[in-house]
């Protein structure tokens, strides 16, 4: 897939300056970077939630997007999941995997942060998208749910062949799940590498970033 170059300006400040980029179809790409480096902005624009300065979405793909803070609609957990498709078999596979079976009839508004994130992931994976964009999907989850999520995401990719972007603050996660890593620094993709290349950073910023993680 091809992302055409774009910029995004908030209140007169350019927070994202993204060049044209090619990503091989069906790959999983982790997006990493410090707070405020523009990861969420990038995710929202690729997903078509926000418009870049030009007003034209840089990719023309049917995208599914999980926001950094997931929203639970005022209805049961099961209804929330089934909002996005009526295949109950598919729903069952997902919520059983994510350990939501006991919570299905609960009002989704009362879920804990991690439970809400698990529900939101199930809900999103109910449909087939060409492009999946997940903004820190496991940030609120415990280790078990994180592992299950990663498995689900990989299975989803294998089944649908879609391209996946995962914003993450965990390099361990990036290593476990992704084919390549995109490092955003002050609103620019400063470095892009295969996951195996994480131990050989080319830019100074990325080297310092990796140092914090003890890589």
């Amino acid at each position: 897939m091809i992302i055409s170059g774009f910029t995004k300006t908030y209140d007169g400040r350019c927070v994202l300056d993204f060049p044209r980029m090619e990503i091989s179809d069906g790959s999983i790409c982790s997006v990493v970077g410090t707070n405020g480096s523009g990861k969420t902005t990038m995710a929202k624009i690729l997903a078509g939630i926000e418009k870049p300065d030009s007003g034209i979405r840089p990719v023309e793909l049917n995208a599914g997007y999980m926001p950094q803070r997931s929203f639970a609609f005022r209805m049961s957990v099961l209804k929330n999941i089934m909002l996005n498709g009526d295949d109950s078999e598919r729903a069952k596979l997902l919520y059983e995997k994510m350990g939501l079976t006991a919570l299905l009839n609960k009002n989704a508004k009362n879920l804990s942060g991690g439970e809400t994130a698990r529900m939101a992931l199930c809900r999103l994976l109910m449909k087939d998208y060409d492009l999946l964009i997940l903004d820190e999907p496991t940030a609120a989850m415990d280790i078990e749910a994180t592992t299950e999520s990663e498995t689900l995401i990989k299975e989803y990719r294998d089944k649908t062949g879609c391209t996946v972007f995962i914003v993450s603050h965990s390099l361990q996660q990036a290593k476990r799940i992704s084919d390549e890593v995109l490092f955003l620094h002050e609103g620019r993709p400063a470095e892009r590498c295969r996951t195996e290349g994480l131990n050989a950073p080319k830019t100074e910023e990325f080297r310092r970033f990796l140092e914090f993680y003890g890589v």
Partner: peptide, 15 residues
């Protein structure tokens, strides 16, 4: 107070 979260979530699902 809720419109952005609702819109973001619904649009993100393709609803």
């Amino acid at each position: 107070g809720i419109r952005f979260s609702v819109r973001e979530t619904a649009k993100g699902l393709g609803i």
